[in-house]
């Protein structure tokens, strides 16, 4: 293959990947109009203390911003008979295609008798955590009926609010400079 042919091939691959990526981003609603979703006979809400933000996957909420540390009051229920039965489920973070998702929490009770739960959950994330990354959290509850849901969240802050972000920007510039050097012929 000649160098012109190789260039054409490389540009064609880049073009296809770019179109697929942009189309995927638009389909996912990354422009902000991301619908939340909840299916099945379940109700679940959470209110972040201090901010007053209410997370309700049964309505369209866009991207929910959560603080680095805080707490939230949650409430969940399922419309099934309150009799002894198996109930279980899990919550996980959706990852890019080809990368296995990782589970945040899972539960299982072979002799469950309740049909609802309320409580408070708190968190304190490390300050070095990268901020601003939008990610989707999905969950499923298997009971007499099955409920599924998803919300889209991000941790408050931006790229300059954590040392990891600043380091990434610096390394981006360094690798860009070396990439530019690779474009210069030998013997300069």
């Amino acid at each position: 293959m000649t160098r012109r042919g190789m260039l054409s091939f490389v540009l064609a691959i880049c073009g296809v990947l770019s179109v697929v990526g942009v189309a995927s981003a638009q389909a996912a609603g990354s422009d902000g109009s991301i619908p939340a979703r909840l299916t099945g006979p379940c109700q679940v809400t959470a209110t972040i203390n201090g901010t007053g933000t209410t997370i309700d996957p049964s309505s369209s909420g866009g991207v929910y911003t959560v603080p680095l540390s805080g707490s939230a009051n949650y409430s969940g229920s399922i419309a099934v008979p309150a009799e002894e039965r198996f109930a279980g489920g899990s919550v996980w973070v959706v990852t890019p295609p080809g990368i296995p998702s990782f589970t945040i929490k899972s539960w299982e009770d072979p002799v469950a008798e309740t049909v609802g739960d309320t409580g408070e959950v708190s968190w304190d994330l490390p300050g070095a955590l990268p901020r601003g990354i939008i990610f989707t959290v999905e969950g499923v509850h298997n009971d007499t009926a099955t409920c599924t849901g998803a919300i889209t969240v991000k941790v408050e802050g931006g790229i300059t609010d954590s040392p990891v972000g600043l380091a990434s920007v610096a390394l981006t510039l360094v690798t860009a400079a070396v990439l530019g050097f690779a474009a210069i012929p030998r013997g300069l």
Binding site: L17, S18, V20, G21, V22, S24, A25, A28, S30, I34, V63, V93, V94, T95, P96, P97, G98, I99, P130, R131, G132, I133, I134, F135, T136, T152, K154, G158, I159, G165, S168, V169, L171, T172, T175
Partner: peptide, 21 residues
């Protein structure tokens, strides 16, 4: 690194195919 920067600037989500592409 550019992908990581764009993720932190909320340009696209973590589950976007652009993270791989």
């Amino acid at each position: 690194f550019l992908t990581f920067d764009l993720l932190m600037m909320s340009v696209f989500a973590l589950d976007s195919v652009m993270v791989i592409a």
